[in-house]
Amino acid sequence: MRSARWIVALVLVALPQFAGEFYVNLISQIFIAAIFASSLNLLVGYAGLTSLGHASYLGVSAYLSAWLYLKLGIGHWLSAPIALAVTTVMAGFFGWIALRASGLGFLMITLALSQVLWGLAYRWSAVTNGDNGLSGLTRPQPFGLSLDSASAFYYFTLIVVAVAIGMMAKFIGSPFGAALKGTRDQPRRMSALGHDVRRVRWITFVYAGFWGAVSGLLYIYYHKYIHPTSLSLTNSAEALLGVIAGGSGTLVGPIIGAAIVVLLKNYVSAYVERWNMLLGFVFVAIVLFMPDGLVPGVRRLWARVTGRRKPTDAASNS
């Protein structure tokens, strides 16, 4: 298992040396989607809260970064932290509202809030330039290094994705993460044990919003363009599909799921312009036939093949 990890790391580092620009860009997109889906997985998989509004954080941080640059001429070194901070504060506010409910109420409120932002992006053209979107953006130049080439941006994204996934893994593996999983499985019991369930969920919501905002920055740096669709239900649903298809509540699942969604979107929509239809069918198929997602499904299969006992939570917790 450990050696497999090293091999993956090596391949990822060496990839731009042998892969063409198209593939390097494709993997960069997968990285961005992986951060986005993993941040959503903190809510869906570990808090047991299904949000259908996660595009809010990607979209708002991307719009903010673009707007600060275009309208106020603020450079990346300052616009990035502002965008992250403002988006995170917004997550704090949205989380406070949405967590007044739980279950499907939570899902409906997150969806309604993000649809309001989506409508706002279309209508408030003074700020968002409406349906035309905001263009004319640049990529940052950390330490004077240009990120304009596919491979330079790839390495930049690789570093961010490694840090992001690492930080989220730490979060999940911490005492707080253990309490979080407890609130997912037995919320009432957890409050009887002295845990403040709503605050645990709220902190997780804000943390997920922060990493969603990070993926939004990468998104705007990659595309150098932003359109209201980045805030759409489709975008939230793609991330959720990635989480569920890969396997919610696992660290690797959403990464694999995000990769599948990006690949599907790139390849299939190159041939047929029917992404929404395909997205719909994949959703239906996953829910009906593979509700646990790929990673737990394959893991179970593997356990059966090797004849081992199903790994207990002791193994995954320690």
């Binding site: 299904t50 259908l52 239809m277 994949v282 829910v287």
Partner: peptide, 30 residues
């Protein structure tokens, strides 16, 4: 014929209706 097969799994049912919404939306476009 579809939702019923997920009886008791509210979240699955909601996600299924979301998928169907995407399909209808695209069909209308076609």
């Amino acid at each position: 014929f579809v939702l019923r097969s997920l009886g008791g799994n509210a979240l699955g049912q909601v996600l299924l209706t979301l998928g169907v919404a995407f399909i209808i939306s695209d069909l209308c476009l076609i």
